[in-house]
Nucleic acid binder design. Structure first.
Lengths: 190, 190
DNA sequence: ACACTTCTATACCGAACGGTATAGAATCGC
DNA sequence: GCGATTCTATACCGTTCGGTATAGAAGTGT
C-alpha cells in the first residue's frame, strides 16, 4: 500500500502551505493522513527529507511547462505571454504548491530545507535568462540585459500570482495576462 | 533601565529575520539579549505581542519615507524614482527588517502574527495607489489602472530588494535604480 | 510451510516549546 | 526613610517537538 506515501505528501503539502514548515509538526502531518510517525520516517527519513521530496516531485510539472514555454520562437512578446500563461496555469492548478514555493523562496535563507526550493527557482531562472539571451540576437538593444530581464519577468509573474493568492485579482483572465505582458514590454505609458 | 526592551527588540529582529518567526524560541531571544523570559513577557505580553511591537515600531521610518516620496509633484517618472529610492535606501539601512517584512508578507496567511505585516503593506499600497490616481489626472491613459500600477510597482521594488538580499545585484547603484524605473515606465524595448 | 523483505503501530526518548507563580531587586514620589 | 510601583531572576508548569527501539502485520519468492 505505497499510496500511504502519497497521502503523507498530500497532507504535508496542505499543512506546510497553510501554516509554514516550522509551524507544522510531524505529528500533525501523520494524523492528517491517518497514519503514524514510523510510516513517515520509513518513506522520508526526516522532516526535512519529507519537505525535499515534496518540492522535488511536485515541481517537475512546473519545470516542464516553463521549459516548453521558454523556447524562443522568434517572437518575444509571444514567448513571454506563453511563459506567464504557463506559470499562471500551474498556479491555478496547484495553488497550495505555488504558495509553498513562494513562501519558501522569500523565507530566511538559513533554513536548510529551503535549499530545495532555491534549486527549483534557480533552474527556472536559467531557462528564462537563456530565452532572453537568444532573443537578444534579434533585438540588439536587449543585449547584456538578459539577466535583469529574466529577474524582473519572474518578479512580475510571481507578484501577480502572490496577489491572486491573496485574493486581490483574478488570475484566470486572459485580458489581465495580456495587460501584464504589454506593460512588461512597453511600460505603463502604453 | 528600559533599554532592555530595545535590546530584546534588536535580538528578536535579528533572529526572526535570520530564521523565521516559528523557528525562533522565546528562550533564544532573551538569551541573545542577556535577559530572562519574565522580562520579555513584562514588556510584550506574548511572543506574538513581541513580533507585533517589532513590526509596528520599526516600520514607521519606512512608512514616513514612502509617504513623503509618494507625494505627486507633476512628474510621474520623478515620483516613481523617489519612491523606489526611498524603499531601496530603507532596505540598505535596515536589511534585517526588510527581510523580515518580505518573508512575512509572502508567508502563509493563517498565522495570526502576520496580520501586523499585512497592515503595513496595505498602508503603503494605499499611498502608492493614491499617487497613481492623482497622476492619472495628467495622463488620461493611466486612468482606471492605478491599482494595477501600484501593485506592479511595489512588486518590482520588492523583487529588486529580494534579489539584493540574496546577493544577486547591488542596490546602492543609481544606474540600476534608473534602469529599473525606465523599464517600468517604457518597457524592455527602448 | 518457510524465511525474508517491506511496511506500520505502540510506546517511549530527551529536549525545547510558550508561558507563569513567586519573590527579590531597583526606582520613584513623598 | 518608606510605601508603592516597576522591573527582573529562579524555578517550574503542561505540552509538543523531531526522532526511534521494538515488535507485529502483510506481502513475496521458493
Amino acid at each position: 500500500m505505497s499510496d500511504n506515501r502519497a497521502h503523507i505528501l498530500d497532507q504535508a503539502l496542505r499543512l506546510f502551505a497553510e501554516k509554514g514548515y516550522d509551524a507544522v509538526g510531524v505529528q500533525q502531518v501523520v494524523e492528517a493522513a491517518g497514519l503514524t510517525k514510523p510510516t513517515l520516517y520509513h518513506y522520508f527519513g526526516s522532516k526535512q527529507g519529507l519537505f525535499e521530496a515534496l518540492i522535488e516531485e511536485r515541481s517537475q510539472p512546473l519545470h516542464e511547462a516553463v521549459r516548453q514555454a521558454a523556447e524562443y520562437s522568434g517572437d518575444v512578446t509571444l514567448t513571454i505571454t506563453r511563459l506567464a500563461r504557463a506559470c499562471f496555469s500551474f498556479a491555478l492548478a496547484e495553488p497550495l504548491f505555488y504558495r509553498l514555493l513562494l513562501s519558501t523562496w522569500f523565507a530566511p535563507p538559513s533554513s536548510e530545507y529551503s535549499a530545495a526550493v532555491r534549486r527549483v527557482q534557480e533552474r527556472q531562472y536559467r531557462l528564462i535568462a537563456a530565452m532572453f539571451e537568444q532573443a537578444a540576437h534579434d533585438h540588439g538593444n536587449m543585449r547584456g540585459r538578459h539577466r535583469r530581464y529574466a529577474v524582473s519577468l519572474r518578479g512580475m509573474i510571481d507578484t501577480y500570482i502572490a496577489l491572486w493568492l491573496q485574493g486581490h485579482l483574478a488570475l484566470d483572465d486572459e485580458t489581465l495576462l495580456h495587460e501584464a505582458v504589454h506593460q512588461f514590454m512597453h511600460g505603463i505609458f502604453s
